[in-house]
Amino acid sequence: MLIQQNVNYYKMAVEVKELLEAGVHFGHLTRKWDPNMAPYVYMERNGIHIINLYKTAAKIDEAGAALAKIAASGRKILFVATKKQAKDIVSEKAGEINMPYITERWPGGMLTNFVTIRKAVKKMATIDRMKKDGTFMTLSKKERLQVDRLRSKLEKNLGSITDMTRLPGALFVVDIKREHIAIKEAQKLNIPIFAMVDTNSDPRQVDYVIPANDDASKSINKILTHVTSSIAQGLAERKSEKEATAAAKAAPKKEAAPAKATATEEEE
């Protein structure tokens, strides 16, 4: 009976088999592990820690539900992944759901000095206007070259956060050891942190831990697919609510029924 209950409990939206096939269970070398990851480690094999995929599946569901709620509220979720094997995956997946992302170097003060970052983003828009209204061509050749270089640099580092006009509602990070500056900034501002956490990292830094291999592209792709799917559901829910509200406002109001004649009117 107990075994059957456990089977039912782990029958979640995320299949353990697909996580296994993607290599999500492979952790780091045992000598490089962080003891705080012990609750998520299933066993040791050939000097490598194996992650408990049942717990990973449960954590993906938990994180997905929370992210869907944030997306439904209209807040943005900022994805952060600057490691080579994650950059293209994150830019593709986050781009599909129109969420901001950082895949180049993390700009110091991205969150804690957000006003300055927004000024840099607005600088791109100013340069674009200059090119549109002809002002750009009034500059010297050297100045045009400098402005173009600045525009390219800003686009590379901040182009993916153009639509993020306020602080994000959450951060999703791949590899919290590598993105430690982003983690610290989010902690200072009490921004919820969701992350893929490998066996060499401290999960206590994260609000929503997804224990997983954060080095293999297959593993990263699998986790991001589930995460962005949950966010897409939250966005769809928000859209349907907006449409329902708009339809309710546009619907013609029913005319009030005429009042019953009073006794005096009947006598007349």
Rank of each mutant, 00 (worst) to 15 (best):
T138Y: 02
A94H: 04
E96P: 00
V174G: 03
V90G: 07
E155T: 14
N213G: 10
I48S: 08
R45M: 07
E268W: 14
R105A: 15
Y208L: 00
V41L: 14
I70F: 04
V41M: 14
H180Q: 15
N190F: 08
V80R: 04
N157K: 14
Y54E: 14
Q5F: 10
R178S: 15
F26E: 11
M1L: 06
L224N: 08
P39I: 11
K254Y: 08
D88M: 08
V16K: 12
L154S: 05
M124S: 07
L171D: 04
T165D: 13
V173W: 10
L111N: 03
T225H: 12
Q85T: 14
G74Y: 00
G23M: 00
A38H: 12
I127T: 11
E255I: 05
A63N: 02
H25P: 02
I176T: 15
L111D: 01
V7R: 15
D148S: 11
H226L: 02
E179H: 09
L29V: 01
Y42P: 03
T245L: 10
K84I: 01
K239L: 15
T262I: 06
T56Y: 01
V24M: 05
V80C: 12
S230R: 11
R118Y: 00
A248C: 03
D88F: 14
H226A: 02
K69Y: 08
F79G: 05
P35H: 02
A125E: 15
I210G: 04
T30P: 01
E267K: 15
D215C: 07
M1W: 06
I183P: 01
I77P: 01
K249P: 02
E179W: 02
V174S: 01
E243R: 13
A257H: 05
A216I: 00
N221Y: 11
A182V: 04
K122G: 07
Y101A: 08
P211S: 11
Q5Y: 09
Q5V: 14
A261T: 06
F136K: 00
Q85S: 15
G134A: 08
M137A: 13
I193E: 01
Q4R: 14
L171I: 08
D133T: 09
V197T: 07
L189E: 07
T103C: 10
K17Q: 13
K141C: 00
I223C: 03
A170K: 04
R149Y: 14
K11L: 12
E143M: 08
R118W: 02
A57R: 04
P39N: 14
E179I: 02
E18P: 03
T135Y: 06
G64L: 03
K254H: 04
T165K: 13
A68N: 04
R204L: 13
D61K: 13
K142F: 01
R118F: 00
A86T: 09
K87E: 07
Q187T: 15
G109T: 04
A94C: 12
M124L: 13
I102A: 05
N36F: 12
A63E: 00
D128V: 00
I102C: 03
I191P: 10
A182G: 13
R118P: 01
K87T: 08
P258V: 04
S140M: 05
Q4L: 14
K177A: 09
A68K: 01
R31H: 09
K253W: 00
T82V: 09
G134L: 09
I223M: 10
L145R: 08
T103D: 06
Y9C: 14
K119V: 13
K83Y: 02
P192L: 07
K218L: 07
N213Q: 11
